[in-house]
Computed example of a mutant assay.
Amino acid sequence: MSPGLIDVHAHLLPDFYVRQATAAGHAHPDGMGDWPEWSVEAHLDLMDRNGIETAMLSMSSPGVHFGDDKAARLLARRVNEYTAELPRSHPGRFGTFASLPLPDVDGALEEIGFAFDELDADGVALLTHTQGVYLGDQHLDPVFSELDRRRAVVFLHPTSPVCWERSALGRPRPMVEYIFDTARTVTDLVVAGVLTRHPNLRVIVPHCGGAVPVLADRINEFMRLFLPTQEQLTPDAVQQLQGLYYDMAGTAFPRQVPALLNLVDPDRVLFGSDYCWTPPSLADAHIASMDTAGPPVEGATWRSLTTVNARRLFPELGPAR
Rank of each mutant, 00 (worst) to 15 (best):
D236H: 14
E111M: 05
L195I: 15
L201V: 00
H43C: 12
A72F: 14
Y178F: 15
R184G: 01
F16R: 03
G210A: 01
P199N: 10
I112V: 12
S304C: 06
L12Q: 12
G136Q: 04
V143F: 03
G136W: 12
I6R: 13
R88H: 07
D48I: 08
T22M: 06
R49K: 02
A84D: 11
D69H: 15
L241E: 12
P213H: 05
Q131A: 15
H198E: 11
T307L: 00
Q230Y: 11
M248Q: 06
P172I: 05
V205Y: 07
P14L: 04
A252V: 14
L305P: 09
G51S: 06
H139E: 14
H139S: 10
V124T: 02
Q20I: 09
D148W: 07
T187P: 00
F144A: 13
M47C: 15
L57D: 11
G318A: 10
C208T: 03
P14C: 06
P296F: 03
G92W: 04
T234S: 15
H28I: 00
A72Y: 09
I6T: 01
A320K: 02
V64H: 03
L12Y: 05
L260M: 09
T292G: 09
R268M: 03
A76G: 09
G170Q: 09
L227R: 15
F314I: 11
D265W: 04
P266G: 05
F314P: 02
V40N: 03
T22K: 09
R202H: 04
L282W: 11
A21K: 11
S145D: 14
E221S: 14
V154G: 09
A211I: 07
P158D: 13
M223Q: 10
V205G: 04
A71F: 06
Q20P: 00
V190M: 02
V186F: 05
A98G: 09
D267T: 13
L313W: 01
L244Q: 06
D181V: 06
S289Y: 13
M59C: 07
V79W: 13
T234C: 06
L12G: 07
A252W: 07
M32I: 06
R311I: 04
P62N: 03
P174L: 10
R255S: 13
E221I: 04
F226V: 10
N309Q: 05
A192S: 15
A23N: 00
H65S: 06
C276A: 15
